[in-house]
Design a protein around this nucleic acid. Structure first.
Length: 291
DNA sequence: GACGTAACAGCCGTTACATCA
DNA sequence: ATTGATGTAACGGCTGTTACG
């Protein structure tokens, strides 16, 4: 299954920081990347050379593949064992060889960064991306066994799978943040509007000489009550104020009195698509009916 | 039991590269 | 052909967790 680019991550809320009223700060300070230290060929150089020789640069090195195939989780004869060793999770192939060194290895590799500081970036194929995406839908984190199996399946290095999942989680989080920001922005707009309306109402009440009979026919003023626990606002239209919650009400009970507005989760929406945000928000934050 | 340490996984911020308009 | 914007693979650094001595 191929995932169209637009289908995949195509959600764009078009939310600028100014629009959202958010103060988003960017750290523009240059990072202090350590200078390359090794004289040998880097991964990227190796891949460049391999690519120039017509070799699939995305394919994991043969030695690594052999180890991974030995350790393949999908293999019924898998000899991988996961040992919880002193809180340090170690994963061994059959011969007792430690096989999950890919993280350390890959980090070590970076120390062998080439002299010109360049690194080749490998574009994952659509098929690879689709399979990773499917896997992510099932589980947004991988254990080493799954990681190895997936890497074998996709002809990638385990580190590449790990990085992909890491970046994918980051993208999910970013999308959720955008949704939250949009949600809060709309909350703010509604509250501003409500505040304006209430101020107008106060002004009218002050300026009017109200006769009691006329007053009796008025709709009751909106009563706002703040939860002393979490400071959420509850709206009541009753003329009689709501009974104050007990001073030591448990937080869970308190929240029944002050229900949290529904926040649209990215994860709950098929694919990426938190497109339903606006309608769900409007339902969740609809102004109290006055009647 | 408290503490220091090692190994690990995940997150964050960033960089570098590929692609496209 | 060039360029700026965008997406994303990959990295280093940091932090939290876990178990051991």
């Amino acid at each position: 299954m191929l995932i169209d680019k637009d289908q995949d991550l195509g959600l764009s809320l078009g939310l600028s920081s100014s629009e959202a009223g958010c103060s988003l700060q960017l750290n523009l300070m240059p990072s202090s990347s350590p200078p390359p230290t090794a004289l040998c060929l880097t991964q990227s150089e190796q891949r460049t050379v391999l690519a120039s020789q017509g070799i699939d640069v995305n394919r994991a090195p043969m030695a690594e593949i052999e180890i991974e195939e030995d350790a393949g989780a999908s293999s019924p004869n898998s000899t991988v064992s996961t040992e919880n060793y002193g809180g340090k999770r170690r994963y061994y192939a059959g011969g007792g060889e430690e096989i999950d060194g890919d993280r350390a290895c890959s980090r070590g590799v970076s120390d062998e960064e080439d002299g010109d500081g360049s690194r080749k970036k490998l574009r994952l194929s659509k098929d690879q991306a689709a399979i990773l995406e499917e896997s992510f839908k099932e589980n947004n984190t991988l254990n080493p066994k799954q990681k190895l199996a997936l890497a074998n399946k996709l002809n990638l290095r385990p580190r590449q799978v790990e990085v992909w999942f890491q970046n994918r989680r980051a993208r999910t989080k970013l999308k959720q943040t955008e949704v939250d920001c949009e949600f809060l922005k709309l909350c703010c707009e509604n509250l501003t509007e409500e505040n304006r309306r209430l101020q107008k109402e106060v002004q009218e009440l002050r300026s009017l000489k109200l006769s009691p009979p006329f007053f009796m026919h008025m709709t009751p003023p909106t009563t706002l009550t703040m939860c002393p626990s979490c400071e959420r606002i509850a709206v009541s239209n009753s003329t009689a104020p709501p009974p104050p919650p007990p001073a030591k009400l448990p937080r869970s009970d308190m929240h029944q009195l002050f229900p949290r507005p529904v926040r649209p989760p990215v994860a709950a929406i098929p694919g990426w698509a938190p497109i339903v945000l606006r309608s769900s928000f409007l339902n969740a934050t609809a102004k109290p009916q006055r009647s």
